[in-house]
Nucleic acid binder design. Structure first.
Length: 708
DNA sequence: GTGCCTCGAGTTCC
DNA sequence: CTCGAGGCAC
């Protein structure tokens, strides 16, 4: 067989003949696989046929057959990638930076599960690969799509590219009908260096580090380019599965390996935090010789049933943590301190640095947090605790917190210029000259200009179009800034009247570089598409201080419709416990006095209110339908827990109830539907009886939710 | 009142 | 990603 001949040594005639032979073999294998139970060739053979085919096509592009098997992977989308919603979100991990954090992680798990301190609990520990995470979906053993993490909920469809990665099998044997495998795409040091050398020889872009090279390679629109890049994949987790893979994390990983995936050989089961830390040190010692980048060690509770009980916080699982290696440090000179103004008016100092390489990336800006941080007064957890202030001209130590955000960590006083002066933090907003006021007890100084401050307006607009808010295709922060400067958009509502404003001529827009009639209309269509918006997104988009994504969704779920929400916050009387609207707002678990005041103030302040009303008149707001009441007996009900819970902790009970669509409140009122009372329940149980609220015990509660 | 826990706001670089 | 601060349990 000519299979063994290096592609580089093939003559054109040989290549052509082999391409035809491969096309036939692959097509036969496809048919056999899809129609018969008995494939004629092994998965590994099948994969190697496809890869060989691809390699030859890359070497001899003009010989590519019109019905080439590589074309079956689907042509790349014309612009960018299709979006894919993950069936289960791809979450990030919490971090531990030292042994103490690891012990805290262990004890918080014991606490959450109601286990005694020191009770036996196994963990897995594995290196955290520094690459990009990828989710692979297999249906009936066949790879159907591959998606990047994206924002965790929606990723990009990189299926065609993933198919070119050697470590990613096209088909799996004996896999569940539905199996989503998750893992990390990465590039080895050797491959990275070879790639950069080839890039340099071809006068092409040099990559800063293996991670960037891997990311750049996976996100190629032309999968032939991806195929030429030496990407690898480690599987370490899973998403949706039609049947459980195992009862232990370690066993599930072993199954992924059986399916044909590479799993990391340094994965180990540990019985105590001390063992975890020992394994961490072991891995750290091997770090330089592994041949690929890692940035820490990941610990996971081994028992999957316990993982399930522990569940998730808003963005991270409770049952896993990443123990990070110490960050790389670098010294450089602080050239200037600039002040930025955020959407809430916060004045944030940013360090302009003499560019320096930190952890494989050139850094020229770094955050300085706030006034006190520069003065060397940082209160808690900050690096500058030694009373050193930070001055322009100083030599400062920089690191990338969490390997991302550059921070100034220390100052070298011995190199301080003798004529340097302490930095004076501005007391006026640099953008609008309004007074910048620092409330007592507050760490940040804020511009008091409100909507007269151009910086605040622009930042609010950027927030409005951001991903978690209106997320309008083609209207990002750059465009918003431009439209604001042009005077076209000063208020969120202006976005929705843009089309009318320009009429069909679009003259002004077209005069701008990069905008033609087609792209302008595309933008207007994208804007129109978002006229219909869900209540939670709208509330978040308003950008009311203290009301973020989480609170917005809480409010939307509580009120259900815009009119109910708007009526409540319009009528509420701040700090009046007699007022029904106010007390109803405060009764929402997660909303306190500060948030409620901020909300009500915004709706009762005339200018702000006018802006909201104008916006709302241009929109179609979708009510929130409560999680379907069919499946869950407690959906939409307000539940209160009291007394000692014996089979679960309070936090766990709350999280479970919320997952089932219930609202968990802290206090009993006429609105309470159900009180779950453990032993020792006192005043709440009494009040429930008085109000005629149904009361059950813990077992009753468990029986209720088990009946699903 | 104090001590968690979680969320909100602001941050960089590609 | 981190810090500060709000909310809530104790």
């Amino acid at each position: 067989m000519s299979d063994t001949t290096s592609v580089n040594d093939l003559t054109e005639d040989q290549a052509q003949a082999e391409l035809q032979r491969l096309a036939l073999l692959i097509s036969k294998a496809n048919q056999a696989y899809h129609s018969a139970d008995d494939p004629e060739i092994s998965d590994a053979e099948y994969d190697s046929l496809k890869r060989r085919n691809l390699e030859i096509e890359l070497r001899f592009p003009h010989l590519k057959l019109s019905d080439s098997p590589t074309l079956m992977v689907g042509a790349p989308a014309a612009d960018g990638f299709q979006k894919i919603e993950h069936s289960l979100p791809m979450l990030s991990l919490g971090n531990a930076f030292d042994a103490e954090d690891v012990r805290d992680f262990d004890s918080s798990i014991h606490k959450y599960l109601g286990l005694k301190e020191g009770a036996a609990l196994d963990y897995t520990a594995e290196p955290k690969i520094d690459g990009l995470s990828l989710s692979l979906r297999y249906e009936e053993g066949v790879l159907v799509h591959a998606a990047t993490r994206g924002d965790g909920r929606v990723g990009e469809d990189v299926t065609a590219n993933a198919r070119t990665v050697k470590d990613i099998p096209e088909r799996l044997k004996n896999a569940p009908d539905i199996l989503e495998v998750r893992g990390e795409i990465y590039m080895s040091h050797a491959d990275f260096e070879a790639l950069n050398e080839a890039q340099a020889n071809a006068q092409k872009k040099i990559f800063a580090n293996p991670r960037n090279a891997a990311a750049g390679s996976l996100r190629q629109l032309d999968s032939n380019i991806t195929a030429s890049r030496p990407l690898r994949f480690f599987a370490y987790a899973w998403g949706q599965v039609s049947e459980p893979l195992a009862t232990l994390q370690s066993a599930a990983i072993a199954r992924l390996s059986d399916f044909g995936f590479s799993t990391n050989p340094l994965t180990k089961v540990c019985k105590t935090p001390d063992e975890l830390i020992a394994h961490y040190q072991d891995i750290e010692a091997q770090r330089a010789t592994l041949g690929y980048d890692i940035d820490g060690v990941v610990y996971k509770v081994n028992d999957l049933a316990l993982q399930n009980r522990l569940g998730f916080r808003s963005t991270t699982p409770r049952w896993a943590i990443a123990h990070k290696f110490p960050a790389e440090l670098a010294w450089t000179r602080l050239e200037a301190i600039d002040i930025q103004v955020g959407r809430t008016g916060a004045l944030s100092p940013v360090a302009r640095l003499l560019p320096v390489t930190v952890g494989g990336v050139v850094v020229s800006n770094a955050t300085l947090h706030n006034e006190d941080y520069i003065a060397g007064l940082a209160s808690n957890g900050d690096e500058i605790r030694n009373g050193k202030d930070i001055r322009i001209g100083d030599w400062v130590q920089v690191y990338r917190a969490g390997d991302v955000i550059p921070k100034v960590a220390d100052v070298d006083l011995s190199k301080r210029p003798s004529d340097s002066e302490a930095f004076e933090f501005p007391k006026l907003c640099p953008e609008c000259q309004s007074n910048a006021i620092r409330e007592p007890g507050d760490a940040v100084r804020r511009c008091s200009g409100g909507l007269i401050c151009p910086a605040q307006i622009v930042e609010r607009l950027k927030h409005f179009v951001s991903r978690a808010a209106f997320d309008i295709d083609g209207l990002g922060s750059k465009q918003v800034e431009q439209f604001f400067e042009d005077g076209w958009v000063k208020d969120p509502a202006d976005i929705f009247t843009l089309r009318d404003r320009f009429g069909s001529g679009l003259q002004q827009l077209q005069n701008r570089e990069g905008w033609g009639e087609k792209s302008a209309n595309k933008l207007f269509d994208a804007i129109d598409a978002k006229r219909s918006i869900s209540l939670d997104r709208l509330i978040f988009a308003l950008g009311i201080r203290h009301v973020g994504e989480g609170t917005a969704s809480l409010l939307a779920r509580h009120y259900g419709s815009w009119s109910a929400f708007e009526t409540a916050v319009t009528n509420a009387v701040i700090d009046d416990p007699e007022d029904e609207a106010w007390s109803d707002l405060l009764a929402i678990d997660g909303v306190g006095r500060v948030m409620a005041t901020s909300l009500v103030t915004a709706f009762q302040q005339p200018a702000e209110r006018a802006s909201i009303d104008r916006l709302v008149s241009l929109l179609d707001i979708k009510d929130i339908t409560r999680p379907d009441a069919e499946g869950s007996p407690v959906a939409g009900k307000t539940v209160v827990f009291t007394g000692t819970l014996e089979k679960m902790t309070r936090a766990e009970a709350k999280a479970r109830a919320e997952a089932l669509g219930a609202k968990v409140s802290g206090s009993v009122s006429a609105r309470t539907d159900l009180l779950v009372a453990g032993p020792g329940a006192g005043s709440k149980a009494k009040k429930a009886t008085e109000l005629g609220v149904e009361t059950i015990d813990e077992d009753g509660w468990l029986a209720l939710i088990e009946s699903l």
